[in-house]
Design a protein around this nucleic acid. Structure first.
Length: 527
RNA sequence: GCCGCCGUAGCUCAGCCUGGUAGAGCACCUGACUGUGGAUCAGGGUGUCAUCGGUUCAAAUCCGAUCGGCGGUUCCA
């Protein structure tokens, strides 16, 4: 053995997708996008690469080293543009060129903003910073595809490349759109196979949080964000943990890690905890609203948030979306620097058991909300938008783990090669089956031994094998073996010789009847 | 990123404390079987003991660093 060459290895955080997962993924995307389409969203795609500054405007936490985008310098030189889109020139009046930084998209919303802003940019009134029309055009689209995030820590079910399935409405401030987004999520999840009652769409409004801070007297945004972060951990660390982190800090008993406190006065801390606990275990959107009413109605932002929630509730109720599908949960705190109004997420209530026996909770499988600052940072123009995204990979994993049917994926039909000199005949058999819409593969492996071919078919979960040797060709027949039926009957095998003589899962039929016979086996009937 | 635990065959793991160059179950491979996967029987160990370095006559075993996994913490547009 000499040099081994380059060691083949996959990039960490990225995945190879096997045929079963791939098929499931595509099925989910088809089912969900069909729902999106029914609501009037149209399909737009955008490139995987964007100029980093177009994305970067939405990187609220670029200072944290943990996360980031994959980026690199464009190999091609392009002109540098100023804020009005004019080429920058040097003293000699030459156009200044540079290798711009390109980045892989980390979600589908930032590219949407770019796409939308680019449309507006073409309008003279917008470019001159003096919009003649204060009303941005309405735009509804869905999009799916891979997004890329550099994450320092890779939890199970968390990757650096993953699929998102987005739908967004740009150009409307009406919370009716937010209510509709909840319906879309619910419909889409059910279309992919989640049973009613196994999931819930949780809704909150960032304005409620804002109201809480007004009440408690927290004006600083960073501080507010810190408080929300602590609230979000309530189910993990409990009321005493939350109280400690809001005030003096605590030491995590699990890891011994020191968690610094936020230094809130104890009165403020108990107001915050009261807010979180006020709705714990409260069933029904009406009841949640009533609890919040008594706590936040006297703050300007809280009042606003409550009005929005109330309207969303009325719209949902009018459409028949009850508490079995959409709930109000004031602890939901997504995308702190990003969302401006209603926020939603969808979670599965099913438990998944790891091979190790541990129960694993799936995180949110969908997330979304209103982000009225979308285009503002690109064009200085405030454009309302709301939308949500399904995490396709998480949903796929959830369904794969909780649905037995999905695990039983089938391979193609295999045409066994008994006599390599009759390859043309085998390929003709395969062509006939394919013409009937049946996925079919001819054995091209090295040894023509039948046992090896059967083992191959078994591994590949082939449902049917077509066998034709000298006997069959002489009689113009084929032997058709039902591997799934054979598997069922395999338990009865006591004497192999006897078993082979009877071949209970195999039939010999006239060549003309082959397609029909295979079709009926695939349809579930036994030949 | 920080703290803790872990890293031996394809998988689940034993061996490590008390150094003497590896073992179990399952899986896998071969054959009984010249035209039949799953039964049965008979064979087969398929491994740079994560990597690199240190201590030692001798390291899977002791020490250090690195990489990888898991849990927590941070974070999640």
């Amino acid at each position: 053995m000499g040099e081994r060459g380059i060691v083949p290895r996959k990039v960490k955080g990225f995945r190879d997708i096997d045929p079963v997962t791939s098929r499931l993924r595509r099925r989910l995307i088809e089912a969900a996008t069909e729902v999106y389409r029914r609501y009037g969203f149209e399909h737009w795609d955008t490139p995987v690469l964007e100029y980093a500054d177009a994305l970067g405007k939405y990187l609220p936490d670029t200072d944290t080293a943990d996360e980031g985008v994959y980026s690199f310098r464009n190999p091609e030189m392009e002109p540098v543009l100023d804020g009005r889109g004019q080429e920058v020139r040097d003293d000699a009046n030459n156009v200044v060129m540079t290798h711009h930084v390109l980045a892989m998209r980390y979600d589908l919303t930032a590219p949407l903003a770019r796409r939308y802003a680019e449309e507006l940019w073409a309008r003279d009134d917008i470019r001159s910073q003096q919009p003649s029309s204060p009303k941005p055009p309405l735009f509804r689209r869905y999009q799916y595809g891979p997004v890329f995030r550099f994450e320092a820590k890779l939890d199970p079910g968390r990757y650096r490349e993953f699929q998102q399935l987005d739908f967004d409405t740009v150009g409307s401030t009406d919370v009716a759109v937010d209510a509709e987004a909840c319906c879309v999520l619910s419909d889409a999840l059910e279309a992919t196979g989640l049973g009613r009652g196994t999931y819930e769409v949780r809704v909150n409004d960032r304005k409620l949080h804002k109201g809480l801070f007004e009440r408690v007297g927290i004006a600083d945004e960073t501080k507010a964000r810190d408080v929300l972060r602590v609230i979000d951990k309530y189910d993990k660390i409990g009321p005493s943990g939350v109280a400690a982190e809001l005030q003096g800090g605590r030491i995590d008993p699990g890891s011994g890690a020191e968690v610094p406190g936020l230094g809130l006065p104890s009165g403020a801390a108990s107001l915050v905890i009261d807010y979180v606990e006020s709705c714990l275990g409260v069933e029904g959107r009406e009841n949640v609203l009533a609890r919040l009413e008594s706590r936040l109605a006297d703050t300007p932002s809280g009042r606003e948030g409550l009005d929005e929630m109330r309207r969303i509730h009325a719209l949902l109720a009018g459409l028949g979306y009850g508490d079995d599908r959409v709930v109000f949960d004031p602890s939901v705190a997504r995308g702190l620097a990003y969302y401006t109004g209603p926020v939603f997420e969808a979670v599965s209530k099913l438990e998944v058991r790891e091979p190790s026996g541990a129960v694993r909770r799936f995180g949110a499988i969908c997330g979304g909300g209103r982000y009225d600052g979308l285009v503002e940072r690109l064009l200085g123009l405030r454009v309302p938008a709301t939308g949500a995204s399904i995490g396709v990979d998480r949903l796929a994993e959830l369904i794969a783990r909780t649905s037995a049917a999905e695990a039983e994926a089938r391979g193609p039909v295999l045409v066994v090669v008994m006599d390599p000199s009759r390859m043309a005949d085998y390929q003709r058999i395969a062509a006939e089956l394919r013409a009937a819409g049946i996925a079919t593969e001819v054995w091209y492996g090295p040894q023509p031994k039948m046992k090896a071919q059967m083992t191959y078919a078994d591994r590949k979960r082939c449902p049917v094998v077509v066998i034709a040797g000298g006997d069959e060709f002489a009689k113009d027949t084929v032997s058709i073996k039902d591997l799934l039926r054979g598997k069922e009957l395999a338990g009865e095998i006591a004497d192999r010789a006897e078993w082979l003589r009877r071949q209970p899962s195999q039939v010999e039929v006239a060549r003309a009847a082959m397609v029909e016979t295979v079709r009926s086996i695939l349809a579930g009937g036994n030949a």
